[in-house]
Design a protein around this nucleic acid. Structure first.
Length: 903
RNA sequence: GGGCGCUUAGCUCAGCUGGUUAGAGCAUCUCGUUUACACCGAGAGGGUCGAGAGUUCGAAUCCCUCAGCGCCCACCA
C-alpha cells in the first residue's frame, strides 16, 4: 500500500497539526450523556505567573494518560483546565517589575485600581503562554470549560461559601499573632513559611537579678517578665517576686514567673518575653494573662511611642544601637558569636517574617457545625473521616499517615491576606466620620487600613455596601488557597447545580505533586464537604474527588530540585519537545517513576524514548508497506489467525491487554507503559515482524496487532500513534475503542513452533559466539527431531535468515553426525556440522559441570518436595510447578549423560 | 525532638499482597549495512538486592536493630 512517510519520525511535522485536528473536532469536550459513565479530572491550575516547568509536564502527562484511557474505554471523560491567580506570588512579581521601571512603591504611587490593572495585564499574557504550553504537551483538556480562579463566577462561589461559613460562625475575626511579612505587607500562613539557617549573635545581658540571653535585643524595651523553669534550682527563690532595675530607657519593674516551656540548658535558663513579636511568647502571655504591647510597627521599624531615642529605626539599626547603649550602661555581659538559628521567611517572595498581633479572619476548625454522618462534626473531624473511612483514597497509601498527622496538629486557618490581588473579603466595616475623613484624604491607605481594622467596629457580610451609615469594605483579600479549594466544584458551575455539576461531580482523580498535599488537597476536602453538605447533598457526593494520586518531584541528574535559579541542570520542557518531541518527553516522565517518589531526569533518557517513538513509527511503516487497501477495510475475526506465529502473537497481545488494564486501573502508569513498550519492541518488532518477512506472512494479523498496539500506546504517546493512524483508520484514534481482552484469541501452546524457532535461533547464535565462528559467515545446519521437525518447517526460512545459515536440513532423528556439535532445544537436537568450532575436551568438561550443577539442584528440590510441611503449607500450584520442574531437570540430566556418551 | 522515604548491575531506576534461575534503559565489550528502523540488529560481561539478626519449607519483598542519604512537621529566647 502507498505509505509515503519518511523513514524517521519527525515530531515537529505532526504534533501541532494533530492537536488542532483533535481540538477542532471537539474530541476534548465531552457531553453530559446519561448512557455513559462520567470520568472527571480537574487540572491543578498552574500559577498564572510564568511558564510551565517539568513538574507541570509530569502532571499533564499522567492526567492525559488517565483521560485518554477513559475516553477510549467509553467514558464521558472531562478534564477541566484553568489557571490560578496565585495572589501573593503574582502581586510580588508585578510589583518587582514595576519597581524596575522606577515606581518605587507601586501600592502607594498607583493605588488599588491602577495596580490591579497592571497585574491583570500581566496575568493575561502569562495565561496565554501557559495555555500554549499545555497544548504543546498534548493535553486533551476541554478548553471550552476553561476557568480562572479570579473569574466572576468563581468570585460568586467564593463569596457564597464565605457567607455560609460566616453565618455559621466558623469564619471569625480575631486578634492573634500572625506571620507578618513587612516586605510584602501581608500575613503569611504557617505552611507558607520557610526556615532559613542564619548565623547570628547571642547577647547576654544583666537583667535585674538574672542574666538573660537573646538574639533580638531590639524587642526588649517593654519586657517586664522573667521566665524560668519551675524545676530550676538556680532561680527557685526568686519565682513570684518583683524587681526594679535599670534597663534600656531607664528603670523598669519586672516579675519572675515559672513555666515548663523553658529549656534549662539554653543560655542561662532565664528569659524575658515579647508577646507581640514571638509565637511562644504570645502563648505564654496568654497562659499567664500578660499584656502584649506592640514594639515594632508593620513596616519593621521601632514604634516612636515605645522609645523616643530609637523610634523609627529599622530592626537592624536598632539592634546595633541598643546593644551599644546597654554596653555603656554596663549591662552587656557577653556576646556569643557563633550562634546559628533559623529565620522564618515567606515561601513566596522570601521576605523575613516579623510576628505581629493583628486582627485577622480565621476559619474555626473545631466548631461542630457540619452535619456529617448523622452527627454534628467539626471541619477537623470531617477532614479526618473522609480519609479514615476510605471515602477518599490516597495513592501511595503512606501519605495518609502524613495527612492524619497534619490534621492532628491543625489550627484555625488564617484566611485574610493584606494584599490587593485576589478575592476581596466580602465584609463591610462601619466607620465614624472622622475615620472616614482620614481614610479618603490619604493616598497611602495601607497602614491606615491596618489601624482602622484593629479597632473593633460593627461588621457586616455582603458584596454590596450596606445602605444606612458609612461603611468601608475590608481591604484584605482571601488566601489563594481559599479560592483554589473550591476548584473541583466551582469550575462545574457551583453554587448553581448545573447539568455539568450534577453529572461530572465528584471528580474521579486529583493528580498533583505531594508537596501541596496540605496547601491544597486538604483544603479542597474542607471546602467541598462544607459547601456541598450545606447544599444538602449526601456525604459521598460532597467529596471533591475519590482518589488522590501524588506524583514525585522531578530532580536533575544529581538529585537536586530543578529550579530556574540553576539553569545548567534545569530542563525546560519546551526545549525538550523541540528537540525530541512531546511523545518522547511524556514517556520519559512517566516510565521509571513511581507515585510519591522523586525522579531524576536527564536528557539521555528523553533521547532514549525518542528512539522508541521512532521504532513505533518504523514498525508501522513496515507493516503498512506490506498491507493492502483491502486488508485495511476488512473486519478482523478468528478465522484470520492461521500460523503458529499468529497464535503466539495474539496470545501475547491478550496477555498484554490484561496486564496493562490492571496496571492502569491501579495507577501504575510506569508499569503499564513498560509492558507495552516491551511488547512492541521485543515481541512485535523483534519477532513477529521478522517472522512475517518469510512465508509465514499474515497481513490480517499484522494489521490487527498493530492497531491494538497503537490504541494501547495512544494515551502515552498520543501524537505518533495518531499520525500513524491517519493511514489506517477512518476516524481519529483518540475516539477509538480501547482493546478488550478476548479469550477467543488466547491459544494454548500445544504447538510451539514459534517458541521453538526462537529458541533454535538463540541456541545457534550462542554456539556461534562460543566457538568464535565469524558471525558474518554462513554455516550449514541440520536439525534432527522426529515429529517436531514438522512444526518448524514453516519457520525454516526464518531460521535460516536470522541465524545466517547457508543451508538447513530437517531430518528425523536416528542418523546423527558424530563429528558435529549438538545442542538441545526442547526435544529437538540441532547439529551444526562445520569444523573448527569443536573442542571436545572442553565440551566434556562443560557437560560434566552442567550435570553436577543440575544434580545439586535436583537433590535440593527432592529434599524440598519430600518435606511434608512444604507440601502442606505451600500453595498447590507451586508444589505442582516444582514437581514438574524436577522431572524436567531429571530428563535434561539424562540427555546430557547421553550426550556425554557420544564423545 | 516527632514522622516518612530511599539504599537492587558502572549510572538511572522497576520489582504489587513472600514463590521458577532478581529485571529494564543507558553505558561498556564483541559481531553484524539479512526486503521497516544505525534514533538499528544479534550477543556478552557486570548483582552475597546497605549491614546484622529474626520469622518461614522458601526473604530483595515481612519483623527487629544499626548505618548512610534525602524529605516533611514542630521548635530553637
Amino acid at each position: 500500500m502507498d505509505f509515503q512517510i519518511e523513514p524517521a519520525y519527525d515530531a515537529k511535522k505532526h504534533e501541532d497539526k494533530i492537536y488542532k485536528k483533535w481540538e477542532d473536532s471537539k474530541a476534548f469536550s465531552p457531553k453530559v450523556d446519561p448512557t455513559k459513565k462520567p470520568f472527571t479530572i480537574s487540572l491543578p491550575p498552574p500559577n498564572a505567573t510564568g511558564t510551565l516547568h517539568l513538574g507541570h509536564a509530569t502532571m499533564l502527562a499522567i492526567e492525559d494518560i488517565m483521560i485518554r484511557h477513559h475516553r477510549m474505554m467509553g467514558y464521558s471523560a472531562l478534564w477541566v483546565p484553568g489557571t490560578d491567580h496565585a495572589a501573593i506570588a503574582t502581586q510580588s512579581v508585578v510589583e518587582k517589575k514595576l519597581q524596575a521601571t522606577g515606581i518605587k512603591s507601586p501600592r502607594k504611587e498607583l493605588g488599588r485600581e491602577k495596580l490591579l490593572g497592571h497585574i491583570r495585564e500581566f496575568v493575561k499574557e502569562s495565561q496565554s503562554t501557559i495555555r500554549n504550553q499545555i497544548r504543546k504537551m498534548g493535553a486533551s483538556c476541554d478548553w471550552s470549560r476553561e476557568k480562572y480562579t479570579l473569574d466572576e463566577d468563581m468570585n460568586v462561589a467564593v463569596n457564597t461559601l464565605f457567607g455560609r461559613m460566616y453565618e455559621d460562625g466558623v469564619i471569625y475575626r480575631g486578634g492573634r499573632i500572625v506571620n507578618w511579612d513587612p516586605n510584602m505587607q501581608t500575613t503569611v500562613a504557617d505552611d507558607e513559611l520557610e526556615y532559613k539557617e542564619e548565623k547570628a549573635k547571642l547577647y547576654y545581658f544583666q537583667y535585674g537579678p538574672v542574666i538573660i540571653s537573646t538574639a533580638r535585643p531590639e524587642t526588649k524595651f517593654l519586657d517586664k517578665v522573667i521566665v524560668v523553669h519551675p524545676k530550676d534550682k538556680r532561680y527557685k527563690k526568686i519565682v513570684g517576686k518583683e524587681f526594679e532595675f535599670e534597663w534600656i530607657d531607664g528603670p523598669i519593674k519586672a516579675k519572675v514567673i515559672a513555666d515548663d516551656c523553658i529549656d534549662m540548658k539554653f543560655g542561662t535558663g532565664a528569659m524575658t518575653i515579647t508577646p507581640a513579636h514571638s509565637f511562644i511568647d504570645f502563648d505564654l502571655a496568654k497562659r499567664h494573662k500578660l499584656d502584649a504591647p506592640q514594639i515594632i510597627d508593620f513596616n519593621g521599624k521601632i514604634k516612636p511611642e515605645v522609645s523616643k531615642e530609637f523610634g523609627g529605626l529599622t530592626i537592624d539599626e536598632a539592634r546595633v544601637a541598643i546593644v551599644e547603649k546597654l554596653r555603656e550602661k554596663g549591662l552587656l555581659v557577653k556576646i556569643e558569636e557563633d550562634y546559628t538559628h533559623k529565620v522564618a521567611v515567606n515561601y513566596r517572595g522570601k521576605g523575613t517574617i516579623e510576628p505581629q498581633i493583628m486582627k485577622q479572619w480565621f476559619i474555626d476548625v473545631n466548631k461542630k457545625v457540619i452535619q456529617w454522618k448523622k452527627k454534628k462534626c467539626s471541619i477537623k473531624e470531617v477532614l479526618q473521616d473522609t480519609i479514615q473511612s476510605k471515602m477518599i483514597k490516597i495513592v501511595p497509601r503512606r501519605f495518609e499517615k502524613i495527612y492524619f498527622h497534619w490534621i492532628d496538629n491543625l489550627q484555625d486557618w488564617c484566611i485574610s491576606r493584606q494584599i490587593w490581588w485576589g478575592h476581596q473579603i466580602p465584609i463591610w466595616h462601619k466607620v465614624t466620620e472622622s475615620q472616614l475623613k482620614a481614610l479618603t484624604s490619604k493616598n497611602d491607605t495601607s497602614t491606615l487600613d491596618l489601624e482602622l481594622l484593629n479597632v473593633n467596629g460593627e461588621v457586616k457580610f455582603g458584596t454590596e455596601k450596606p445602605k444606612s451609615g458609612e461603611w468601608f469594605r475590608d481591604p484584605d483579600t482571601l488566601d489563594t488557597w481559599f479560592s483554589s479549594a473550591l476548584w473541583t466544584f466551582a469550575t462545574l458551575g457551583w453554587p448553581k447545580h448545573t447539568e455539568d455539576f450534577k453529572y461530572f461531580h465528584p471528580t474521579d482523580v486529583l493528580e498533583t505533586g505531594y508537596d501541596i498535599l496540605f496547601f491544597w488537597v486538604a483544603r479542597m476536602i474542607l471546602a467541598s464537604t462544607y459547601a456541598l453538605r450545606s447544599d444538602g447533598l449526601p456525604e459521598e457526593q460532597c467529596l471533591p474527588f475519590k482518589t488522590v494520586y501524588l506524583h514525585g518531584l522531578i530532580r536533575d541528574r544529581n538529585g537536586k530540585k530543578m529550579s530556574k535559579s540553576s539553569p545548567e541542570t534545569c530542563i525546560d520542557p519546551l526545549d525538550m519537545i523541540e528537540k525530541y518531541g512531546t511523545d518522547a518527553l511524556r514517556l520519559s516522565l512517566v516510565i521509571g517513576s513511581s507515585p510519591g517518589n522523586d525522579m531524576r531526569l536527564y536528557e539521555e533518557k528523553i533521547a532514549g524514548y525518542r528512539n522508541f517513538v521512532n521504532k513505533i513509527w518504523n514498525a508501522s511503516r513496515f507493516a503498512l508497506i506490506n498491507i493492502s487497501k483491502e486488508d485495511i477495510s476488512a473486519e478482523f475475526d478468528e478465522s484470520m489467525i492461521k500460523t503458529d506465529a499468529d497464535k503466539w502473537i495474539m496470545t501475547e497481545l491478550q496477555k498484554l491487554i490484561k496486564a496493562a488494564d490492571k496496571d492502569l486501573e491501579t495507577h501504575q502508569f510506569s508499569a503499564a507503559g513498560t509492558k507495552i513498550y516491551d511488547f512492541i519492541w521485543n515481541q512485535y518488532c523483534d519477532w513477529y515482524l521478522e517472522i512475517s518477512k518469510g512465508s509465514q506472512k499474515n497481513t490480517a494479523v499484522l494489521l490487527h496487532v498493530l492497531k491494538d498496539i497503537l490504541k494501547l500506546m495512544h494515551p502515552f504517546v498520543p501524537f505518533v500513534t495518531e499520525a500513524i493512524w491517519e493511514n489506517i483508520g477512518k476516524t481519529m484514534l483518540i475516539n477509538e475503542k480501547w482493546p478488550e481482552y478476548n479469550k477467543k484469541f488466547v491459544f494454548k501452546t500445544e504447538s510451539k513452533s514459534t517458541e521453538l524457532i526462537k529458541e533454535i535461533i538463540t541456541k545457534i547464535r550462542s554456539v556461534r559466539s562460543e566457538s568464535k565462528v565469524d558471525a558474518g559467515k554462513k554455516i550449514q545446519a541440520v536439525i534432527y527431531g522426529g515429529k517436531n521437525t514438522e512444526n518448524i518447517k514453516n519457520g525454516q526460512e526464518t531460521i535460516m535468515r536470522l541465524a545466517r545459515l547457508e543451508t538447513l536440513e530437517l531430518k528425523a532423528s536416528g542418523e546423527k553426525l558424530k563429528e558435529s556439535k549438538s545442542i538441545f532445544v526442547e526435544d529437538i537436537e540441532i547439529f551444526l556440522p562445520f569444523k573448527g568450532m569443536l573442542d571436545i575436551e572442553k565440551e566434556k568438561k562443560n557437560i560434566l559441570t552442567q550435570i553436577e550443577a543440575k544434580m545439586n539442584f535436583i537433590n535440593g528440590l527432592e529434599k524440598k518436595l519430600s518435606n511434608k510441611e512444604f507440601v502442606k503449607k505451600a500453595p498447590k500450584e507451586i508444589v505442582e510447578k516444582e514437581t514438574e520442574r524436577l522431572s524436567a531437570e531429571k530428563e535434561q540430566v539424562q540427555k546430557l549423560k547421553e550426550q556425554l556418551k557420544e564423545f
